[in-house]
Structures are given as structure tokens and as C-alpha cells.
């Protein structure tokens, strides 16, 4: 089903349908994550992918129009390259350990030390918290810095324009009618 939606996303030229289909795609992948017991990842995917992103796509669409032009070039080289890389990745995945295998290398390296000593060393009963906040503290600090910088950048880019428009026309611009069929 994911494959069908993916191909449809590429092929359909009506952007409204594409925005709706991306919502369906994230709901599908959220269900997929649920099947793999990654409840939190699934939840984030559903909230961000199906909720906010659809709205953002619609907002963009109201600025740039509803249909996509037909592309002129035929990207056969890119398609071939992508297929090749995909085939290589699938081939490499045969070497990976079984899903949930406790003897996999990723579970042998530092995870036992974390599970054994983190309640005494760090304190919080939730092990993920202690790994994120203490063992990988610098990593988390860097991530927070990146997110903060991105937020400040977006605000600097959009802020003045939004405020000007807000002052200029307080009543809502009613240009939504032209999208109705």
C-alpha cells in the first residue's frame, strides 16, 4: 500500500490530491511503525505528517496554484541511479541481523552498560531519558541548538512580512472561493 501511494504521489498532477495523499501516506507509515512497537515514532508521524504538513501544503498551494506543469525532461538517468541504489540497499539488508535479535551488534556495544548502570549513575527511572540527557548530552544540546536556529531563522524570514500584512488588512482576505469546484 505504501508503494501504491508513493507512485501515485509522483504521478498525480493535481496538487490538492497530492496533499491529501501525503496525509494518507503518513497515516499508513504510522500504522507500520505501530506494528513494529515504535509507538512514539508512530505518534509523531501521525501528528506532524497527517496534521501539520497537510495544512502547510494547503497553505503553500493557495499561494502557488493547484496544478503542476508537465516536466519536459525525461529523468531516465536519475531513475536508473535510484533503482540501482535501492537494489544495493535491499541487497545489503540481507546481511542485517533479524528484527529484534538480542545478539545483534547494536545491542552488544554500549547498551548493556547503559541498562546496568544508568539507574545508579544518572538517576531517572526512564532509561531513554538518561541516555538522551546524560550519556549523549552534547548530542542533544547540539540538536536543540539546530532546532532553535531553524526557528529563529524562520521567524526572521517570515516575521516582518506577517506583521505588516496583519496590520494592513485585519479582515480576512476572502480569496478561498476560487478553489471551490
Amino acid at each position: 500500500m505504501l508503494l501504491v501511494v508513493g507512485f501515485a504521489l509522483v504521478l498525480i498532477r493535481d496538487l490538492f490530491a497530492v496533499a491529501m495523499l501525503t496525509g494518507i501516506y503518513s497515516l499508513l507509515s504510522a500504522c507500520f511503525f505501530m506494528l513494529q512497537d515504535a509507538v512514539d515514532v508512530a505518534f509523531t508521524e501521525a501528528a506532524v505528517g497527517a496534521g501539520i504538513t497537510t495544512i502547510l501544503f494547503l497553505a503553500t498551494m493557495s499561494q502557488v496554484g493547484r496544478t503542476e506543469r508537465k516536466p519536459k525532461n525525461k529523468p531516465w538517468f536519475a531513475i536508473g541511479l535510484c533503482s540501482l541504489v535501492a537494489a544495493l540497499l535491499v541487497y545489503a539488508s540481507f546481511d542485517m541481523p533479524d528484527y529484534g535479535d538480542p545478539l545483534a551488534p547494536v545491542h552488544q556495544h554500549v547498551a548493556p552498560r547503559y541498562t546496568e548502570t544508568s539507574p545508579n549513575e544518572v538517576g531517572p527511572p526512564n532509561m531513554v531519558t538518561s541516555v538522551l540527557a546524560s550519556y549523549r548530552g552534547y548530542d542533544t544540546l547540539g540538536e536543540t541548538g539546530v532546532v532553535f536556529t531553524a526557528g529563529v531563522g524562520v521567524l526572521l524570514l517570515l516575521g516582518p512580512g506577517l506583521r505588516r500584512r496583519y496590520r494592513r488588512d485585519l479582515p480576512a482576505p476572502k480569496d478561498g472561493k476560487k478553489h471551490a469546484e
Binding site: G23, G51, A59
Partner: peptide, 25 residues
């Protein structure tokens, strides 16, 4: 989430924007 998302899409579709409600801005 599903409910809020659908309401937001429909509202967007009707008014063309989400930032302003249609009475008092």
C-alpha cells in the same frame, strides 16, 4: 488529531487561510 486535521483542512478550503477568523481578525 484526525478530527482537528479534518476541521483545519475544511476551514482552509472555505476561507483560504487559517491565520484569521472571518469576524474579528
Amino acid at each position: 488529531i484526525n478530527f482537528i486535521g479534518t476541521i483545519a483542512v475544511l476551514k482552509f478550503f472555505k476561507y483560504g487561510s487559517l491565520g484569521y477568523s472571518d469576524k474579528d481578525g
